[in-house]
Design a protein around this nucleic acid. Structure first.
Lengths: 216, 216
DNA sequence: AACGACGCTGTGAGGGCGCTGAGGACGACG
DNA sequence: CGTCGTCCTCAGCGCCCTCACAGCGTCGTT
């Protein structure tokens, strides 16, 4: 367990408490030191303060995720504004707790994070030069923005979460379309057609008799 | 996305809001109905109220997890006591939000949950240098991709699940072909021929009078 | 060696599957 | 009320897959 916190009293209180729970705990007190430790340490999870000298917690997570390191991150902050929280999560944190917090809650949330194991998905989905940002609802192709309708976006989103896998039309109808109204499978074909015109024909393969596959 | 919430105003507000974000949303208004939906629905995630008629949210998650269903659960509750929250998380919920909550925060937390996703990695079948990935619907022979039609793929799939065993033509007709239309056994011979041309003659042996066997 | 049963394959018909352009339904907006 | 954007159905088309057929090769038995 890695604790990145510059306030020394809180840091050592956390360290002692977590050690009592059986965790092996390391503490870093600056942003850069925390980033380094997270890179090399092989930790199960990380508790991360937002306000840090040298590098903010937001930026730290963002860099970590950009390097494809997916260890669970529980973010701590004195800021309880809703947008602060949303920003933290959208940078790649997995949970967000505002100070002052209950120790019982911290432990429960930590357990929930560890139970889930290492996260597998980045905040921004990327396949080749195609990028999709769920938070900003934005898609770029080789750094050029692509305008998508909401249905097109949902379809691409679903496909990009399973790159290289074959996804059947029924599955797409179930997840991208509303299950309560039954839509003809042909609608999927139509929207795949729309997407192909916008992101390039070769990126979206047809697997006859099985479904569609996003080329990796 | 599954929303389990008995307060109808909140439920429909959530439904509309999430639909606007591109989610396909189903609503259940009682505990048992929610549990059923979660069991059968194939949802990406679930938003779950604690106070529900018939079955509490706590109990619902506990049962779900007992059945080894791991879809991400975001729990909603009017109780903000620290132990309520810890209980919810320890029952198996992945996140916990107290009412009233900010819609922006709800979305951000939902995104964080979906990002982590379910940790399923489907198996890749391998026999010698021949590999078959059911999810990607892809076959490689010594790392070179082999293009198969859907029937060829289904046939190879079935054979690779029983490497070295002799599989009769009738058995193949029953499992690889549609049982409702009766096909001549010769169709199997034809497709075995197709497969041999693509994966190499020696890998698929004929056992005269009995069937076929995949060489190990 | 001869014969019959079983298995292989080239050919071609048919039909299922997926793609596309056209257009109707619906709602948002001016 | 007209316009625009989005969603989705419909119908036509083209291609590839599927499979029956028939002739030939191969194997095992007598």
């Amino acid at each position: 367990m890695l604790v990145v916190e510059d306030e020394s009293r809180l840091a050592s209180a956390l360290q002692r408490g977590l050690q009592a729970e059986g965790f092996a705990v390391d503490v870093a007190t600056t942003g850069p030191a925390g980033l380094d430790a997270a890179r090399h340490g092989g930790y199960d999870a990380m508790i991360l303060d937002v306000m840090l000298p040298g590098l903010s917690g937001y930026e730290l997570v963002r860099r970590l995720r950009a390097e494809e390191r997916w260890l669970p991150v529980l973010m701590l902050s004195a800021k309880d504004g809703e947008y602060d929280q949303a920003d933290g999560l959208d940078c790649g944190a997995d949970d967000y707790l505002t100070k002052p917090f209950s120790y019982v809650v911290l432990l429960a949330r930590l357990r929930a994070l560890l139970r889930r194991g290492a996260p597998e998905r980045p905040t921004v989905l990327a396949v080749g030069d195609l990028r999709l940002d769920p938070a900003r609802r934005r898609v770029t192709l080789a750094d050029a923005e692509v305008a998508l309708t909401s249905r097109e976006f949902a379809l691409l989103d679903y496909l990009m979460r399973r790159p290289g896998e074959v996804v059947s039309k029924t599955e797409l109808l179930d997840h991208v379309w509303d299950a309560s109204v039954d839509t003809a499978p042909n609608a999927v074909e139509v929207y795949v057609g729309y997407l192909r015109r916008k992101i390039g024909r070769e990126r979206l393969e047809t697997v006859r008799g099985a479904g569609y596959r996003l080329a990796t």
